[in-house]
């Protein structure tokens, strides 16, 4: 399995170096930076630093800028991971290499592991750039519990990976990347507490956030960065994330397997 993962890692890195997906990378960085800018403009210039009373109550902090900037950065990170992993099989399909991969006795686990490991480099880069820009615009990092933040970040990658498997099977099902991914991303941005705390949403919409790994991941990450919470303090969120990951993993593995068969049939049918 690791053998296949390594080969896939090397292959993707080579492709990346030869035809760097700058548009995606810059796109992710830009959308993160725009969220930073929006938060900065709105907070300083439009609302002159005045917050709603409930905000501090919902978030245990009155640091809106850190809240919003981390939201933007983490959202960009989630989108990037989801895209890189979920698009891999459908890209093979479009480029005509899917059959060649499916012909081999290699394990799909290894293939995806290689993919996710390779894309980690890119997302880490994107995330760092956004956080760096965020720091210029008022993100406070002085209380950060670095180790728990890093751990939450890594665990989140796992959670997004599991969700990406489901997204990937949906893409193969619809034979589409554009509509599927962007609809999910629009909903994610709305219900996961990216730019505003979830309790502001109408109650009937709030459960939607519960099924997005982004919501608990972001919540835990903010606590670690803004309040310097240790890892055990965010264990409820981590359990929530683990449960979601498990569910997505089961559905995703089943879905990908099912879709591989379906796709092969529909190419020649």
């Amino acid at each position: 399995m690791f053998h296949v993962a390594k080969a896939t890692f090397i292959r993707n890195t080579r492709v990346m170096i030869r035809a760097y997906p700058w548009s995606f990378v810059i796109g992710h960085i830009f959308s993160g930076v725009y969220t930073v800018l929006f938060a900065f403009f709105a907070y300083h210039y439009v609302f002159a630093g005045q917050l709603d009373e409930n905000f501090a109550h919902f978030t245990d902090s009155s640091d809106y800028l850190s809240y919003a900037i981390l939201g933007g950065a983490f959202y960009a990170f989630a989108v990037s991971t989801l895209m890189n992993v979920s698009r891999s099989l459908i890209t093979e399909l479009r480029e005509g290499t899917l059959e060649a991969v499916l012909l081999t006795p290699s394990l799909r686990r290894g293939y995806f592991l290689g993919n996710v490991a390779q894309q980690l480099m890119r997302t880490l880069f994107e995330f760092s750039v956004i956080v760096f820009v965020g720091a210029l615009f008022g993100l406070t990092l002085s209380h950060t519990n670095v180790w728990s933040a890093v751990l939450v970040w890594i665990l989140s990658t796992g959670a997004f990976f599991c969700q990406a498997l489901v997204l990937g099977s949906l893409m193969l099902w619809f034979r589409d990347t554009y509509i599927t991914q962007n609809t999910l991303f629009a909903v994610m941005a709305f219900v996961s507490g990216v730019t505003f705390p979830i309790p502001y949403l109408p109650e009937w919409l709030q459960p939607l956030g519960l099924i997005m790994p982004l919501a608990p991941a972001l919540d835990a990450f903010r606590q670690c960065v803004i309040q310097g919470a240790p890892l055990h303090a965010v264990s409820p969120q981590l359990f929530h994330m683990a449960a979601l990951s498990l569910v997505y993993l089961v559905i995703g593995v089943w879905g990908i397997r099912k879709m591989e068969k379906r796709v092969m049939e529909s190419i020649f049918g």
């Binding site: 053998h3 296949v4 292959r11 080579r14 492709v15 290499t97 059959e99 081999t104």
Partner: peptide, 27 residues
């Protein structure tokens, strides 16, 4: 399996890199 046409290869990789990748998938 070998199919006609220009599918089933990674165009951005070199010939050797293609074989390296597929060889790895066969262990």
């Amino acid at each position: 399996m070998i199919a006609g046409g220009e599918r089933m290869l990674y165009w951005r990789l070199t010939g050797r890199e293609n074989l390296q990748y597929f060889g790895s998938l066969y262990g």
